[in-house]
Write a protein that binds this DNA or RNA. Structure first.
Lengths: 326, 326
DNA sequence: CTGTTAGCGCCTTCAC
DNA sequence: GTGAAGGCGCTAACAG
């Protein structure tokens, strides 16, 4: 080492000072520190990693890097990582099981010290399998092993919260815009929709359930179809906020007022939802907190500690797209 | 190497096959490939990096990981990196010069092979200084050295596009919501606002210029203030889309119709802007393309090749928030 | 064509 | 308390 030479000590001593591995006399310590400062030396992480088997990097798997849904969580991860010395490599699975598998393999090949999996299509079994190589925490699943931890929100309950709100406002004919097929969260929200109807003794009308895709375009299309099929309804529950935005636009195009003519409720509470016109009533997911909490948990798993999977619950945020039916 | 032993060859031969560095007889190649498959071996990137002085990682500096503005660009970067073998480490500067400097240092310490800097507060001089260590490409600046390349859009021109559109529609009293102080893009857009007014022989009324912060809340506040000060105007030009969303909400709260009573135009064309109510007329920034193009350029710089800094121009996207003044 | 050798930068014994 | 030696996994140069 350059620094060692400059300070007139051996490389080992420099290493000891950098890592606090052993006691070093004050004079040498000072000399080394000075040499480090003058060289502005920093240890090479690749060499460290090679030696210690730790890359000080964690992998994050999102599904879409430009979706506000994931980005809010990423912000939590980012803050959770601050000051820990860990950096993160973010990859996208694009809601595609194969791609997701591929990306995780890639992260593992890069020797990340742990993985945060946000949503996705992977089976729990697959996640468990990967977790034998590195600790994994994941949102949207129930997992509790030494190396894998899941953070699951009660989507069905959240959907019931939304429905009860609508029902309390006197709505009976409530349309539901689903998420994409085979999506867990989407399925559970649909279940909540049905259960709330049942709970309130309102007959389920399958015609009021239309298929969306968790995106604006899908929401818009879904509701257009509903109008074409001449259904009557006074409220719409969209399986996520993005769909609700699309629904909102469809309503605007038809000259239907929200909430005067039709009430609308979403799910997620994306950052933009307090600035839609009018601001959207929705079910709040603690996206940022989930990011932070999942990160802390992963760090604990990496250190061989245990972690729990408690997260804040879903809650109803009443804004201005819902009102009492006339 | 495990694999080498298994295949009965030397580690170098394995390396040669993996890298295609030299010709290897077919039988050995087959044996090695088989051994690799059975072990599902993958070379350790840290060892490779240590040896070759390349980490196959690039650093991305954004200002806010959860802003749709940056995320759209990140998507371009992500796609640009696909299949190149490079991974990316994303860090946030939070619009803070010190933090930005710090993060770049961190990336450099991690031995990234290059850096993509998205916007930010750093001086060109600082960027140039960093670029002596690793190639850097940056959006929002004019830079053309062997190791640093800037991608700059003509914000002033973009603002003029917006203003001319409004002026052609007959607007004369046009309010402007600025971006944050000391922000280059924001300043240039303001310049474009003024220049377009001048070009059209419309007297500049400083009272119509109100300060925003590039966020929704700032836009909302700015226009509230404007109303309080009793100004008359028929159109609002917001320095970015996020501000425009805030403006839109303020107008909604006051019962002012868009575009019937007041026209509104933004700047950026964020993905959400085609789904606001009504869809927002704005100036389109080629965010995704910038991400892709900047990435390709960086890859070229990393390989010691030259790259140019051509990007698609800003363009007006007319949607439904502007109309002819009555 | 292929094995041997050396070294990337660091950390961790192991001696002194 | 501190230096010397060895090795993490890989590849490039050097022999053959």
């Amino acid at each position: 080492m350059e620094v060692a030479r400059l300070a007139g000590v051996s490389p080992s001593t420099v290493s000891r000072i950098l890592n606090g591995t052993a006691k070093v006399s004050d004079d040498k310590r000072l000399a080394v520190l000075a040499a480090i400062a003058s060289t502005n030396f920093a240890p090479n992480p690749m060499a460290q990693g090679l030696k210690k088997g730790r890359s000080m990097t964690i992998g994050i798997v999102v599904q879409d890097i430009s979706s506000p849904f994931f980005d809010e969580t990423l912000r939590g991860v980012d803050d959770g990582l601050a000051g820990t010395g860990f950096a993160s490599v973010i990859v996208s699975g694009h809601w595609n099981e194969e791609e997701e598998t591929d990306r995780i393999r890639l992260l593992l090949a890069r020797k990340v010290d742990g993985i945060i999996l946000l949503s996705g299509r992977l089976s729990d079994a697959a996640v468990l399998r990967f977790s034998t190589q590195r600790p994994i925490v994941s949102t949207g699943r129930d997992l509790h092993t030494r190396n894998a931890l899941g953070f699951k929100l009660d989507n069905e309950h959240g959907a019931m919260l939304a429905m009860r709100h609508l029902i309390e406002l006197g709505h009976r004919r409530i349309a539901f815009v689903t998420g994409p097929r085979h999506n867990n969260d989407a399925d559970e929200r649909l279940a909540g929709y049905k259960r709330a109807l049942h709970e309130a003794d309102i007959a389920l009308d399958p015609k009021l359930i239309v298929e969306g895709d968790f995106h604006e375009a899908g929401g818009l299309l879904a509701i257009s179809h509903l109008f074409e099929s001449q259904q009557q309804f006074t409220a719409i529950f969209a399986a996520n906020d993005l769909s609700a935005y699309g629904v909102r636009l469809c309503l605007y195009r038809k000259g239907i007022r929200v909430p005067d003519d039709i009430s609308l409720i979403g799910f997620d509470d994306l950052p933009g939802s307090s600035y839609t016109t009018p601001p959207l009533t929705t079910i709040r997911q603690p996206l940022y907190d989930m990011g932070r909490i999942a990160t802390h948990a992963l760090l604990r798993l990496i250190n061989g500690e245990t972690a729990d999977s408690a997260i804040p619950p879903l809650e109803l945020v009443v804004r201005e797209t819902t009102r009492r039916v006339r």
